[in-house]
């Protein structure tokens, strides 16, 4: 068993860590915020607002 074998184990460990960080945060966010809030993004909203300001201005 040489250094590269330890690096292999390290890579598995880091992969699991990044996976866990994502999953834990995902669960936290999905249980904290409502589905309505999370999916409230609308395409072109900024442009629509700019247009509105221009018309109002």
């Amino acid at each position: 068993m040489d250094t590269w074998n330890y690096i292999e184990y390290g890579a598995w460990g880091l992969s699991a860590l990044f996976g866990l960080l994502i999953v834990i945060d995902w669960i936290k966010i999905d249980t904290t915020y409502s589905e309505e809030a999370l999916t409230s993004s609308r395409e072109g909203e900024l442009e629509a607002m700019t247009e509105k300001h221009r018309l109002e201005g």
Binding site: W4, E8, Y9, A11, W12, L14, S15, F18, L21, I22
Partner: peptide, 16 residues
């Protein structure tokens, strides 16, 4: 070398 841990690490790190 077992390439799988490095393949998985690349995808997991960049996804994170």
């Amino acid at each position: 070398l077992d390439q799988r841990p490095f393949i998985v690490l690349a995808i997991m790190f960049l996804a994170w």
